[in-house]
Design a protein around this nucleic acid. Structure first.
Lengths: 112, 112
DNA sequence: TCAGCATATAAGCATTTTATTATATAAGTA
DNA sequence: TACTTATATAATAAAATGCTTATATGCTGA
């Protein structure tokens, strides 16, 4: 088991200790998502979503990739805390339902 | 894998997302501890320690047992989030060193 | 019963967190 | 070029957090 520092781990747990961010991670472990999809799924303002993503990015948990006018977020599997994140996500309900719902509404952004 | 609710899990993660409480859990997974031991180990005021323990107790993560004038805290293994806690603690450094140090100072409370 | 130790609780305060609104930037398109 | 859409950032306000100090409670032992 790869050990991380106590303080570093606490910071990651605090980040994950918010239901919006935790759900985001649960989604991203399945599929990349863009900001507007999160806005739709969480029924939350665009700046609020943007700020949650910023925190995840500052911690190195996620990466962003621009695709045209959209910016897609994905999990950063190279982060030292990725195994912890993976492990924790096993304990939450599958978040994919949110994406399926989005698709049914025709609001899923496909990046082709 | 036993799934817990998203919100419940987020709350537990937020609780663990503080380095004092995370370390407490890392200690308690090894040994029961009383309040004055935590005060000594964390070099923190007694009320501050008491308040952290209260949060852990309110969440059902720990239990208390009075032994004479001392109150000993222990992990509540019956809590639905205990498996998550166990799993997360695998990622932090062993906290037992703090207890060994305490013992060397002759400040360990033995409950006989 | 009183004094002392261990612990909890309450109140106050500073800091942090998370949302909102307003505005800026960047890409796509007519 | 100008307009629209997607996103980020800044400023701010409200709420939550975590400490401090002061005080209360509950054992223990003289």
């Amino acid at each position: 088991m790869e050990k991380n520092s106590l303080e570093g781990t606490a910071n990651i747990l605090k980040l994950m200790g918010d239901k919006t961010r935790l759900s985001m991670l649960g989604l991203l472990i399945k599929h990349d998502c863009c900001v507007c999809e999160f806005v739709e799924m969480f029924k939350m303002s665009q700046p609020a979503i943007s700020q949650h993503l910023r925190k995840l990015k500052d911690a190195g948990l996620v990466k962003e990739t621009r695709k045209g006018q959209w910016i897609f977020y994905s999990l950063n599997k190279d982060n030292q805390y990725y195994p912890l994140v993976q492990d924790v996500i096993k304990y939450i309900p599958d978040q994919e339902q949110k994406l399926i719902l989005l698709q049914q509404q025709g609001l899923r952004i496909s990046c082709d």
